[in-house]
């Protein structure tokens, strides 16, 4: 269970998270939707302790990340996997070394064992036989898959996805959404996905939460969000420029 309680974050005078509350159900996928630049990525970074809130609590299984020291944060991060927007693969390492990285850092497994796990994780995201390729040789969709394989390397309980389909063509975006849905179903992990791709959100989410002006203004199942009466959520879901959300 992940819970954000009364979380605030400001950069200078710009208040990005404004007394935000959010509960993420264990073993389910929660997609956080909202406008670009609306603070979704900032919110996600709080969930893994890459940012600390100015006020409030970020609770993971009852422990407050905001009050943890570096050693405690390091321990709890081992139960997280994160897929970054552009995959953030280490460009000085090949694909195999990228996926093996967390295993080499945090386990005492032998080389052959690590190689087998790497192949297994790559196969689970539909990529086999690419271990020797460099990240620069891969397409955007392949990079995201490798990033997901790396995020899954330590069999995390919580997986965070930062805009997983941004920059991909619709077919590849759908393939990545299917992969996220299947991965969640297979592993039973708690998944938090940041996205403004509504088609994908409706496909993969157990719950959808909308971030607007620094707060979660609505949360519900995909059907509840699709049929909501809230004018702000309706405008976003319908993709209209006119409405309570000021676009320009």
């Amino acid at each position: 269970m992940i819970e954000l309680v009364d979380v605030c974050k400001a950069f200078g005078r710009q208040r990005v998270l404004n007394h935000l509350d959010l509960a993420v159900e264990k073993g389910e996928t929660t997609v956080i939707i909202g406008r670009s630049g609306g603070g979704k990525s900032v919110l996600l970074r709080h969930l893994i302790g890459l940012m600390k809130p100015d006020c409030g609590q970020v609770l993971v299984d009852g422990q407050d990340l905001a009050r943890m020291n570096n050693r405690q944060l390091k321990e709890i991060r081992k139960s997280f996997g994160m897929l970054f927007q552009d995959a953030a693969l280490f460009d000085s390492m090949n694909v195999g070394d990228n996926v093996a990285f967390p295993l080499r850092e945090h386990t005492r497994k032998r080389r052959a064992e690590i190689r087998d796990i790497v192949e297994e994780k790559l196969a689970s995201v539909g990529l086999s036989g690419v271990s020797d390729k460099m990240p620069s040789e891969l397409s955007g969709g392949m990079r995201k898959r490798v990033g997901l394989a790396r995020a899954l390397a330590l069999d995390p309980h919580i997986i965070l996805f930062d805009e997983p389909t941004t920059g991909l063509d619709p077919l590849m975006a759908d393939a990545i959404d299917t992969l996220i849905r299947d991965t969640q179903a297979r592993t039973g992990a708690t998944c938090v996905v940041i996205s403004h791709d509504l088609a994908g959100a409706f496909k993969i989410a157990h719950h959808i939460a909308m971030l607007y002006e620094g707060r979660i203004i609505a949360k519900g199942t995909p059907d509840e969000i699709r049929n909501t009466e809230d004018p702000v959520v309706r405008q976003f879901v319908e993709g209209r420029a006119d409405g309570p959300i000021k676009v320009v």
Partner: peptide
Amino acid sequence: GTMRVTQQIDALASMAVD
């Protein structure tokens, strides 16, 4: 700098590596 702007430094931290 390249590692920072391509989030590779964040990726290190997210994988519990300082």
